[in-house]
Design a protein around this nucleic acid. Structure first.
Length: 932
DNA sequence: GACCTGCTGCGGGGTG
């Protein structure tokens, strides 16, 4: 191939001291030169960027090209920065200008591109979105584009960002009126054809897929630690021995990252860093730099370091607990042995017996080359957003033209015009667009939702910059030390758990909370050296395990003897014992392992029914939601379910509800599934995510917003549930192809089910939501308002109503003497809150002997009780005797000498059962005012 | 205990 390259390019290759080109560079040259749309598949580190670049630069040297000639798209800002230098090295020497564009490029640098138009622009999907929608001058230069390169296609293909990009490419094609050449760069994927079609869309060019047979081997060891009360310490001790400088230690959560670091630190480890998405950028950069410089012994990280950023040569990868998919397993493993002939070296450290099964299943699947197929997101919210983008671009757009552009995208090739019209009508109803003689224009709600003005924080709406991105963010608090950001915590966690003087562990350090600024959503902290810090819990989306893992586990159990020799090589003794233990426990109970045709049912003492069987997680999720729906309808609100690949469970029913489900007809089950999804937090989250795209900001109305509800339901179903597979599963039970066996003793898989999180329903009934939010704690109106997403004012009114209630939803309030704020709690929880340490000072008078007067009212009855604080503690019955009614509508407390009522405290709608504590609260509060 | 990613353009006015 070298001989076909222009002399100037050949000279540069010589200058780089490249003796030869990599295989993938050789193989890609011809198809790209011939103008084919080309998908290049090879692992990281094989020079894919140059494989795409060489033939293009070669052509650019000979053709009359005008800037902008090439758009290079990649999903990460860090990659853009890397690529800029890499591409610029070649192109600047050939006389072509390169420019980058992402949110953190300084304004000065951004402005340059209009003065000197670049030949090659490197940006994100969002960057292209901005340019097409909004950059009215620069986008004119896009009319010269001949090539579009999309990097990390595997990363984009199954996300909304990829869907967005697929429409953007069709918009670009329509805008410039030229079928530009598309080149994709990807890591190993399972469904290459589909990925190629996704990328190439409506282009009529021939297509080529260039794939490097990945013959790289890898070394893997699966280990198990003892999961007793000090399992984190055990894990750290083992990992400490396994580390070979430099090592990447992957965990599956931000919490685990911090927790493991804590224990590694206790073992005296230095030169170890923490890396995850909630750590400040500077600290992340430090960790990356130290890796590259060879100073870091190890970095404990989440998926942040799984993606393509170069972090130097990694000697070894340790995974704390198995990752949830084969592709993630391979990506993590691939971070080590980065030199082309290096062999990746990995360790999986397991906590539980079933971790060992999963780890081995991952290994077997990886060896066999079984990788998860991409699931393309076909959300209509993306269509809506792109439609709005097109209107921004053209001011107005013909409905048919808009439809054709969307329809050209591979993802929406089956979208019917009627469905498109339904979408348009819904957008028009929300006044985010208006329809004018077959043309679409922006409606007056557009700039209400996507605000330009950052300061007008009041009310609803999002910042205009967010319009260009389909990534959602939950509310967070930023931790600041001396004004410098050190990390981030979920807002809900802050409201529920963080208070002044608490010690928090984040970014591998301990911080004391000095001040919580609710308005700015920041927390001022200061570093401390000792004490036990609490690690915050971040609530992410649930990560489900791929069905490849489930099937692989089934296969391994069925053919245990066949796999045994491999196992002996890869598992350490403890891991091996774990696997054998699972098998022998079933044997001891004379049970078959529930892999294909058995469900083992156990009822635990607390009314939790566990159905264990290896199962597709979507089926488990669907079944558990059906059961949850039935329990709530029939028995109790205090119910929850669990679902996992090891089975599912339901708590709160005295009878086996699965039996009832099996006896229902399919239509009824279908209806229940839909109803149960409408109550699931997963649906609520989807709804929240997509509704701004449709211009919906006010309260959702079941009739008016049918389109939105239907779409949210469809997306939730597609992502997390499966009606078809669930009905098939139930049918197998009916036909007794799946047998149900009841047992009394715990079995290994049921223990695995129990280790999964509880799914609680989200009820639209406000009383219930408040009940759920308050349960077990005491909160201010503002805190609750954030948790529930209801305005503080209406929430306060609701709480005042509930104060009068005479049922389990009844609430009450008291003053938090430390913060002087009113706190609300469930009436049923009040006494346990009084007795908790947290609010001790709110019920502890400072002076026992001062005299107070309480005036109590009930209807027309009224009494005054004179008391000393010590009476409340020593002889409460005497005080109670003086109160002639059980329900006290109003209590007013003041100090006897304060005849002006200058300081008094009131309570409403309380029973005699808690009045003593409220009097204590009033006294503690009034005295705290007086003595401070 | 449950991952990650990104996020105005253009031109006019002022200052040195």
């Amino acid at each position: 191939m070298l001989d076909q390259l222009d002399q100037r390019l050949r000279q540069l290759i010589k200058e780089k001291h490249w003796n030869k080109l990599t295989n993938i560079q050789e193989m890609s040259f011809k198809p790209i030169t011939n103008g084919h749309n080309t998908l290049i598949i090879a692992p990281t580190g094989y020079g894919k960027t140059e494989a795409a670049l060489f033939p293009i630069l070669n052509k650019m040297l000979h053709e009359d090209v005008k800037p902008v000639t090439v758009i290079y798209i990649t999903p990460l800002k860090a990659l853009i920065n890397d690529l800029l230098h890499r591409i610029n090295w070649w192109s600047s020497r050939l006389g072509f200008l390169v420019n980058r564009k992402h949110g953190e490029v300084p304004q000065k640098e951004k402005n340059l591109r209009l003065k000197k138009i670049p030949h090659i622009i490197v940006t994100t999907p969002e960057g292209l979105e901005i340019d097409l929608d909004w950059a009215s001058r620069f986008r004119e230069y896009y009319k010269n584009v001949k090539w579009v390169i999309v990097d990390e296609v595997h990363e984009l293909v199954s996300s909304k960002r990829g869907t967005q990009l697929s429409i953007l490419l069709e918009r670009l094609k329509s805008f410039i009126g030229y079928d530009f050449q598309r080149i994709g760069l990807s890591a190993t994927v399972s469904d290459e054809e589909k990925v190629a079609k996704f990328l190439f869309g409506s282009s009529e060019r021939k297509m080529s897929i260039i794939k490097l047979q990945d013959t790289r081997n890898f070394e893997i060891k699966i280990r198990k630690i003892k999961n007793d009360s000090i399992m984190w310490k055990n894990a750290a001790e083992l990992i400490h021995q396994l580390i070979e400088k430099p090592t990447l230690i992957f965990t599956n959560s931000r919490f685990s990252t911090e927790r493991l670091y804590e224990e590694l630190e206790k073992l005296g480890n230095t030169e170890i860093y923490v890396h995850h998405s909630s750590i400040s950028k500077d600290l992340k950069n430090l960790a990356e730099d130290e890796l590259r410089n060879g100073n870091a012994k190890a970095v404990v990280c989440t998926k942040t370091l799984e993606l393509g950023i170069h972090v130097g040569d990694i000697k070894k990868v340790i995974m704390l607990r198995p990752p949830t998919s084969v592709s993630s397993f391979l990506q993590r493993l691939g971070r080590s042995g980065h030199i082309v002939h290096g062999i990746p070296k990995g360790e999986i450290v397991c906590f539980y017996d079933f971790d060992v099964m999963e780890a081995f299943a991952l290994y077997i699947s990886a060896i066999k080359g079984k990788i998860e197929k991409p699931i393309i997101d076909d959300g209509l919210d993306v269509v809506a957003r792109e439609l709005l983008g097109m209107i921004l671009q053209y001011q107005k757009i013909n409905i048919d033209d808009a439809y054709n552009i969307i329809h050209n995208s591979y993802i929406y090739r089956n979208l019917k015009l009627s469905e498109f019209m339904e979408l348009i009508e819904y957008l028009a109803k929300n006044n985010i667009i208006k329809i004018d003689n077959g043309y679409l224009k922006l409606g007056y709600n557009f700039f209400k939702i996507w605000r330009f003005n950052k300061d007008s924080k009041s009310g609803w709406g999002k910042e205009f910059s967010e319009f260009f991105s389909l990534i959602n963010n939950d509310e967070t608090f930023t931790l600041k030390y001396n004004g410098v950001t050190v990390g981030e915590i979920d807002a809900v966690y802050v409201y529920k758990h963080v208070r002044a003087n608490d010690i928090i562990r984040i970014s591998g350090k301990l911080w004391k909370v000095m001040r919580i600024n609710l308005n700015k959503s920041t927390i001022d902290v200061t570093p401390v050296n000792e004490g036990e810090g609490e690690i915050p819990i971040w609530k992410g989306e649930s990560t489900s395990k791929s069905s490849i893992i489930v099937n692989s586990i089934k296969n391994i159990i069925k053919n245990f003897n066949k796999y045994y020799p491999v196992m002996k090589n890869i598992l350490d003794k403890d891991a091996m014992d774990s696997l054998l233990k699972i098998l022998s426990e079933y044997k001891e109970q004379s049970l078959n392992i529930p892999i294909d045709n058995i469900i083992i049912v156990e009822k635990r003492e607390d009314d939790e029914w566990i159905y264990s069987t290896l199962i597709d997680e979507k089926i488990a999720n669907t079944l558990s939601h059906i059961l949850l729906y039935l329990v709530i309808k029939k028995y109790t609100l205090n119910a929850f379910a669990r679902s996992s690949i090891y089975g599912f469970s339901i708590k709160g029913t005295p009878i086996d509800l699965l039996k009832e489900v099996v006896n229902m007809d399919d239509n009824k089950i279908r209806k229940i599934i839909l109803k149960s999804i409408l109550r699931s937090p997963l649906y609520i989250a989807t709804l929240k995510e997509i509704q701004p795209s449709f211009g919906k900001i006010s309260k959702i109305n079941l009739k008016e917003d049918r389109f939105l509800i239907k779409e949210a339901l469809r997306q939730t179903l597609k992502r997390y549930f499966s009606i078809k597979k669930t009905l098939e599963f139930i049918n197998k039970i009916r036909r007794q192809e799946i047998r149900i066996i009841y047992v009394d003793n715990p079995t290994p898989l049921s223990e695995a089910v129990l280790s999964h999180a509880q799914i609680r329903p989200w009820l639209l009934d406000l009383n219930v939501s408040i009940y759920q939010a308050l349960k077990g704690g005491a909160y201010t109106v503002n805190e609750l308002s954030e948790v529930l997403g209801i305005s503080p004012k209406s929430l306060e009114n609701k709480l005042k109503q509930l104060r009068r209630a005479n049922n389990k939803y009844k609430v009450t309030s008291f003053v938090d003497v430390d913060s002087r704020e009113n706190r609300w709690c469930l009436y049923e929880d009040f006494i346990s809150i009084v007795k908790s340490e947290e609010y001790y000072s709110s019920f502890a008078p400072l002076n026992q002997n001062e005299i107070f007067i309480a005036s109590l009212k009930s209807g027309d009855n009224q009494v005054e009780v004179i008391f000393k604080p010590k009476d409340l503690l020593n002889s409460p019955d005497e005080i109670l005797r003086k109160i002639p009614f059980n329900n006290i509508e109003e209590v007013k407390v003041r100090e006897a000498i304060d005849t002006s009522y200058q300081f008094s405290q009131k309570y409403y709608h309380v029973g005699k059962d808690i009045i003593i504590y409220l009097l204590l609260n009033a006294v503690a509060y009034l005295q705290s005012l007086k003595y401070s």
